[in-house]
Design a protein around this nucleic acid. Structure first.
Length: 588
RNA sequence: GGGGCGGUAGCUCAAUUGGUUAGAGUCCCGGACUGUCGAUCCGGUGGUUGCGGGUUCGAAUCCCGUCCGCCUCGCCA
């Protein structure tokens, strides 16, 4: 074969006169009867080839049969072009081909690796996933997947420099019914038993700390058999980290070094000081535990002001011990009645009865919606909210949690729709002081807010018996632009404490022993204080590549029903295989 | 599991809202063309309108079921 001497994106005018060979895919071809132009593409870019019959009739005739996505080789002289194409980096030169070879003929291509054109539109994701190998040839996809590699490299280098050791943990693990649903793998050697794919290496990394590895990390696949979303795949990748002999600040310092290195390496940006906000603070101020702080639109408590209004919705809520809160959304005063009504319907899914609104007009006048009920407090209202002309004030009245949720969701939705966030800005911060437990109304019991190995603050241990909801966990999230990127905690390192937590979570000794016996044992044979975190790598890449589709950042992703459209997984299996596993299928 | 949107040529879409033989661009095939670069021009192949029922003189269009894709609520310690 004619082996390449250069890549398709690298030749410039300075190489004019040299004889080179290129290998690649036919990106486009233009026939002019006795002159053929072909743009040949590889991962580095495209170069124009010129085929002139004067350079050889056979060569020319072969080139005349080249079609899109054929794989070809071409040898020839680099010459400066008569007419420069300023759209491509190699546009100053072309190759006058003297020898060529077709390395592979492409069958009629089902899709083409084109970027979007005005009149042909973009290829549906179905087709892109089915013919992933063609889709991945697109420069944009190449860029994303290569960015991903650069991120993992940067992470590995930084973690290694900080003294972390990358250790692999098993993929065939033990099923634990807590948390997400497990993917199960039947065990042939022990019939009627199953492995589970890990939801995360949580327990194993804690054990590695007990084993004296001191600082562990792993870029690792995790599996959760739950329903999927735009940013969720059944298998996804985490940067998993655990550290021994540490407190919260040590973990923050370690991660901040990593994220700074990634932003420097990938974006050339220095990250300023990273703030820490408490859970209560973000919930009350932004109505979310992961707000996007690239724009304001804070929630304000208007309960006192609302008491002065003769509005049934407010008074009923306040009498029931609830609150009245509001946000002022810039520019939303232009919303039509139809739009505000639609918002009123939309918020019902978060427990609101409806959405009272009013518009801020010139000179601090209120108009529309519930204006007549709040006119009497207009100046106070506007001052408290810091509202301006053109804002739409949205109220939520009811229980504090509900009001926060409703306004938080509304803030997120309208922030997106009205593009309130500066696209070129990054908002990063830690959320700290989460509650350790959340009350589960449905089952009438306590649940871990994160997981059952999170350590309570030692000075609050006595509250375990009396007021579990008051206990603050040494748990933290890291938020970027309104997305939860990371979460972690200081773990429990004393078996007595762990047992108490299990008790409160209604996990019996027997159960605990069955599921986590090895962890408790390990903990009792010399366990250092420890903590760590897990970072969602796919979501991080999504942010860095500015895509809102997790499938874009994974080479071979799955659809919302967990299918791989290229390899056609999952699929039925041979009855023999089932038999070997002592499995039998339930009739439909 | 619930809700919403979608499925028409290999690909991206249209079809005057139930009415003649389901069209266009692109890809592919063939032809013309020596400076194109999303080449252009001419011709051609290509359809179980996701699938299965039903309503109707007549269904891509309406109804029921089902499958698939996307978004979303629940769910994801």
């Amino acid at each position: 074969m004619l082996k390449r001497t250069n890549k398709c994106g690298e030749l410039r005018a300075t190489e004019a006169g040299r004889t080179v060979t290129l290998n690649g895919w036919v990106d486009s071809y233009r026939h002019h009867g006795s002159l053929i132009f072909i743009d040949v593409r590889d991962h580095t870019g495209v170069t124009q080839l010129v085929f002139d019959p004067d350079q050889g009739k056979e060569m020319y005739e072969l080139a005349a049969t080249y079609r899109r996505e054929d794989v070809i080789a071409a040898q020839g002289k680099v010459v400066k072009r008569q007419s420069v194409n300023s759209k491509i980096p190699t546009g100053e030169i072309e190759i006058v081909v003297s020898k060529t070879e077709r390395l592979n003929k492409c069958a009629k291509p089902p899709i083409l690796p084109d970027e979007v054109h005005e009149d042909t539109g973009s290829v549906s994701e179905d087709s892109r996933l089915r013919y992933r190998y063609i889709d991945l040839r697109r420069p944009r996809m190449q860029e994303i997947i290569r960015t991903r590699h650069k991120v993992t490299q940067t992470i590995r280098n930084t973690m290694t420099a900080m003294g972390f050791c990358e250790i692999e943990t098993p993929v065939l693990c033990k099923s634990t019914p807590e948390g997400a649903r497990d993917f199960l793998v039947p065990c042939r050697l022990m019939p009627r038993t199953f492995y589970a794919l890990p939801q995360s290496p949580q327990i194993l990394k804690q054990i590695l700390m007990m084993s004296g590895f001191d600082r562990y990390f792993q870029i690792v696949k995790c599996f959760r058999d739950e329903n999927l979303r735009f940013d969720r795949q059944p298998e996804f990748t985490q940067l998993d980290v655990e550290m021994a002999f540490v407190e919260q600040d040590d973990i923050f310092a370690a991660f901040e070094q990593v994220i700074r290195a990634v932003w420097k390496e990938l974006l050339g940006l220095e990250i300023a000081e990273i703030p820490r906000l408490t859970f209560d603070e973000v919930m009350n101020t932004y109505g979310s535990d992961k707000p996007d702080l690239r724009f304001g639109v804070k929630l304000y408590d208007l309960t006192e002001i609302a008491k002065k209004c003769d509005f049934r919705v407010f008074s009923t809520a306040i009498e029931a011990g609830g609150v009245v809160k509001a946000i002022a959304v810039p520019g939303a005063a232009s919303f039509s009645r139809k739009q505000t009504d639609a918002l009123g319907e939309w918020v019902k899914q978060f427990g609101a009865g409806g959405l009272p609104t009013t518009k801020v007009m010139a000179e601090g006048k209120l108009e529309g919606g519930i204006a007549k009920f709040v006119e009497n407090v207009a100046p106070e209202l506007i001052a408290t909210l810091g509202a301006n002309e053109g804002d739409l004030i949205c109220f939520a009245a009811g229980k504090l949690d509900t009001a926060n949720r409703v306004l938080g969701e509304l803030r997120r939705k309208l922030g997106n729709e009205l593009k309130l966030a500066n696209e070129n800005q990054w908002s990063m911060f830690w959320v700290v002081d989460f509650p350790l437990f959340l009350w589960n109304e449905e089952d009438q019991r306590w649940d871990s807010a994160h997981h059952p190995f999170c350590a309570p603050r030692p000075e609050q241990l006595h509250l375990l018996e009396t007021d579990p909801h008051k206990i603050t966990a040494q748990t933290y999230d890291f938020i970027i632009n309104g997305h939860e990127m990371l979460s972690g905690s200081i773990r429990i390192h004393q078996p007595e404490v762990q047992q108490k937590i299990f008790q409160l979570l209604n996990i019996s000794d027997e159960e605990a022993k069955d599921r986590f016996g090895f962890l408790i044992d390990a903990m009792s044979y010399g366990c250092p204080p420890l903590g760590g975190f897990a970072l969602g790598l796919d979501r991080l890449i999504m942010l860095l590549c500015k895509t809102d589709n997790i499938r874009d950042v994974i080479a071979f992703p799955k659809t919302q029903t967990g299918a791989d459209l290229m390899m056609q997984a999952p699929s039925a299996v041979d009855p023999k295989q089932l038999d070997e596993l002592s499995l039998q299928l339930k009739p439909e």
